[in-house]
């Protein structure tokens, strides 16, 4: 765990930006956190090819920091949504999805107010062409363009996703369909 005002990121394989409400989501979700001092080092880590994962608010921070394309708008129905959703693995050959078997449809919860992914049509076409769309909703809960739930950057080392795989790692508290996400990451850094 590093403090927002720190400058020195320790030597790590993966930087994870978790969910939450950084700065209360005031102004715009993730906008203030994207400008926190520690983000200089996170961006440098990403440019060096290090893994960066943003989940929920972390995804919003990564788009605000322009490490990922597009933006996350308010949900189409304007309500916060907390729901368990099924995901399609749109690209199984990434460092974030390689442990999911072919045809896997993991069930993972979402919990957000601003998860409505938006990018212009040209960007979306390019992303789809290059395998940057990693997860799609089977039943879109927030109005996201092309049912997008998670994306990677062009190099494939930065991922953002709205669903919470860390909430699906224990049969007692929401199932285990998120485990393969972390197993994929572990394979990647090994």
């Amino acid at each position: 765990m590093v403090w927002h005002a720190d400058h020195d990121l320790p030597d790590v394989d993966i930087v994870l930006l978790p969910g939450g409400f950084s700065y209360g989501d005031y102004l715009r979700s993730g906008a203030i956190a994207a400008r926190a001092p520690v983000m200089h080092d996170v961006i440098a880590h990403a440019k060096r090819g290090g893994y960066v994962v943003g989940i929920c608010n972390g995804f919003q921070v990564l788009t605000e920091a322009q490490l990922l394309p597009g933006a996350l708008l308010r949900n189409a129905n304007l309500h916060f949504v907390c729901r368990s959703v099924h995901l399609q693995i749109a690209n199984p050959d990434t460092g974030f999805t390689c442990a999911y078997g072919s045809g896997a449809v993991p069930q993972i919860p979402v919990a957000h107010h601003d998860g409505n992914y938006f990018a212009d049509a040209k960007t979306l076409d390019r992303m789809e062409g290059e395998g940057q769309v990693v997860f799609r909703y089977c039943d879109n809960p927030n109005g996201s363009a092309r049912d997008i739930a998670g994306i990677i950057n062009e190099k494939g080392n930065v991922l953002g996703m709205m669903p919470h795989p860390e909430r699906a790692v224990d049969p007692a508290t929401g199932g285990t369909d998120g485990r393969a996400f972390f197993e994929s990451l572990m394979r990647g850094v090994r």
């Binding site: 916060f80 907390c82 919990a111 919470h164 007692a172 508290t173 929401g174």
Partner: peptide, 27 residues
């Protein structure tokens, strides 16, 4: 109503409004 509440944050929720139990349960 309850889909507008985050029922899983902190990752200890065993039962909540969606899971068919007469009580909410956290470990």
């Amino acid at each position: 109503v309850w889909e507008q509440y985050d029922r899983h944050v902190m990752a200890d929720t065993m039962h909540e409004s969606a899971t068919a139990c007469d009580a909410g349960v956290i470990r």
